[in-house]
């Protein structure tokens, strides 16, 4: 009898399940959460909703995210979920509702095409005000000591300097997180440079190597980007690759030019743009300078502050800047 009733229960549940999800299968967007309040966080002051903010793995981004998250929480009463994700994975989140906002997007024209134009699950939300540029760098002392080293044409001449245990007899070009935007292999191949890309695995590995290169006077050629607080601490010289021209990096295999200077921008999910209310407006309005970002990032990395503390410090010091972002 007991078994009988269990079978009936099971059948009931199954029928119910089918009925609920009837009409032609489950589409991905069906499962997405709307940005409605999800009641998380016990007793948070009248939650206005939850914003899911992707955090890509570099501290500059984290600084922007911390400030925006601080304002969303303290001034607008939102709950913020920070999601530690790599760049391309973050975009996938637009589709399922796992991600509402990418706060600092570096180019990614292919992803924009796919998710904004084709799938129509994301929209642009304007510039962050930050100018971003990726490049190859050596410590300043090397530029002083080895004239011409910052010209790519001379790199092969100095390849021996950059040899390490990992570079297999070639010069080493140190790269960061595997998920970063990268043309390195193509550039080396197409410019016939005698170098090998060695992946450090993270921003921290780059910073640590650069710091050591400065302190121990060790040769180092590495991938880096601006805005970054490191420029205020370690003197670096950028290597001049063949200058960027429009479309020179269209085919990733044929890139033989430097990176473009990018206007870093914000991408939000379509759903968030439509129903995000004040949070969306704040994010759309958010814009600050490289210096702003660097000061927060520097506090996080070097002054022993947590991201929240650093954000609070900046917010307290710069009311004029952020008050303009608040929705009217």
């Amino acid at each position: 009898m007991r078994i009988g009733s269990r079978v009936r229960l099971l059948a009931g549940v199954l029928t119910l399940g089918l009925a609920v999800s009837a009409c032609g299968g489950a589409r991905v967007a069906d499962g997405a959460n709307s940005p409605a309040p999800s009641g998380s966080g016990s007793g948070a002051p009248a939650a206005a909703g939850t914003v899911k903010l992707a955090v890509n793995p570099w501290v500059g981004y984290e600084a922007s995210a911390a400030v925006v998250s601080h304002l969303l929480k303290e001034n607008l009463g939102y709950t913020v979920e920070l999601k530690e994700l790599s760049e391309q994975v973050s975009w996938e989140g637009f589709e399922t509702g796992e991600v509402d906002v990418i706060l600092e997007n570096w180019g990614h024209d292919d992803l924009k095409k796919k998710f904004i134009e084709e799938k129509k699950v994301a929209v642009e939300a304007g510039s962050t005000g930050n100018k971003g540029v990726i490049g190859w760098y050596v410590p300043q002392w090397m530029a002083d000591k080895h004239p011409g080293i910052t010209d790519w044409k001379n790199l092969n001449k100095y390849a021996d300097l950059f040899k390490t245990s990992e570079s297999g007899g070639k010069g080493q070009l140190l790269f960061g997180d595997p998920s970063y935007v990268s043309n390195e292999n193509a550039i080396i191949k197409n410019l016939k440079l005698n170098y090998k890309v060695v992946t450090g695995g993270s921003e921290a590995a780059l910073i640590q190597s650069a710091t050591q290169a400065q302190e121990q006077q060790k040769p180092l050629l590495f991938y880096f980007w601006d805005p970054h607080w490191l420029f205020n601490r370690v003197k670096l010289a950028r290597v001049d690759l063949p200058p960027h021209t429009d479309g020179c990096d269209a085919d990733p295999k044929k890139v033989a030019c430097d990176y473009a200077e990018l206007d870093l921008d914000k991408i939000v999910s379509k759903r968030f743009a439509d129903g995000g209310g004040k949070a969306y407006e704040l994010i759309k309005n958010f814009t600050w300078t490289n210096e702003d970002q660097n000061s927060v990032a520097n506090d996080i990395t070097n002054n022993g502050m947590s991201a929240e503390e650093a954000a609070k410090k900046w917010v307290d010091a710069n009311p004029g800047t952020w008050q303009a972002w608040l929705p009217k």
């Binding site: 530690e84 994700l85 994975v89 910073i207 990395t301």
Partner: peptide
Amino acid sequence: AALIAAPGLGSAVIRGLSRAD
């Protein structure tokens, strides 16, 4: 799991790793 947006403790470890913190 945190690499594919699992909520929870994993993110902090990932963040620590990327910041060598």
